[in-house]
Design a protein around this nucleic acid. Sequence first.
DNA 1: ATCTAATTGCAACTAAGTTGCAACAACTTC
DNA 2: GAAGTTGTTGCAACTTAGTTGCAATTAGAT
Lengths: 154, 154
Amino acid sequence: MMKFAFKEKVDKLLSSARLKRTGQRKAILEVLLKANSPLTADEIVHATGNTGPNRVTIYRTLESMAEAGILHKAFIEGRSRCYEPADKCSENQCHPHFVCTGCGQTHCLTDATVPMATSMPAGFIIKRQQVRLEGLCPECNMTENKRHMHNDGK
Amino acid sequence: MMKFAFKEKVDKLLSSARLKRTGQRKAILEVLLKANSPLTADEIVHATGNTGPNRVTIYRTLESMAEAGILHKAFIEGRSRCYEPADKCSENQCHPHFVCTGCGQTHCLTDATVPMATSMPAGFIIKRQQVRLEGLCPECNMTENKRHMHNDGK
DNA sequence: ATCTAATTGCAACTAAGTTGCAACAACTTC
DNA sequence: GAAGTTGTTGCAACTTAGTTGCAATTAGAT
Ligand SMILES: [Mn+2]
Ligand SMILES: [Mn+2]
Ligand SMILES: [Zn+2]
Ligand SMILES: [Zn+2]
């Protein structure tokens, strides 16, 4: 059981951000830490349920944690913002996100690397680089291939 | 005067996309082609004015042109979507966008290059890569520097 | 234990985009 | 060039995502 260490991690994150360690914030942070892709406010509302924090609190909390640097806004298209823990990103580059055009799922590519931009016009100082990849995930790619084989065999 | 060639370009774009060449679509496309950064629906509403297309038409037009491939959605944080002409992007990579944390302006970096992602987990097929850069633009960087020199001299 | 500033929840509001539908106009066919 | 067909447009009404003011509450300081 890693439960103890987990709760401690949440507490440490909050105090490192100089935010009061309230039940609401812990609940939100726990959901985000357990998730394996960035989440919207609405997804957190559902994950925390009726007894969880109020919608407005979730919006405000996500913003303040992002401002404090322990969360990042993920660079994904969609009408609603997605947030994720800021670990697994380096100082000047967030890990890339892969969005599958087949199934719509978002994958965190914590191990893929993209070199920093080069041949920048003079005077621009890059503080952070974010990358979004679009394509087919392994499952959807497999299905595509099967479909092709089928059609070719006709 | 390049006016004639310009109007032709608009017409060609529309017919290449198999979209009817209506006054509304031409107006929207002209605004986007003349802009030097991606625009929101609202910015186009203002640019085209009272005599321009209806708000809803602008939303629908942007979507259909993006679907047809002559526009791209630019991935910039912000509550509203931004669109730009799809030229100046290569097959599998859009040109990067630079957002200045000082002044908030977005710059199209049509000449900067970012190599494609490597060390991808097995099975993922990348169709398109998009990059967002955050930092200081030349003007804001200059102002920062002046401020520092001033403080250091105390 | 008391105090105080930060946090929360509620209700009301704004911003951004969507949908159904009837009127209309671009392109096609004759 | 008139008539027909289908895609396009504008309006009004609606949804979704996020914001704001304010009074009640509570975490952490003294
Ligand atoms: Mn991620
Ligand atoms: Mn651009
Ligand atoms: Zn997929
Ligand atoms: Zn700037």
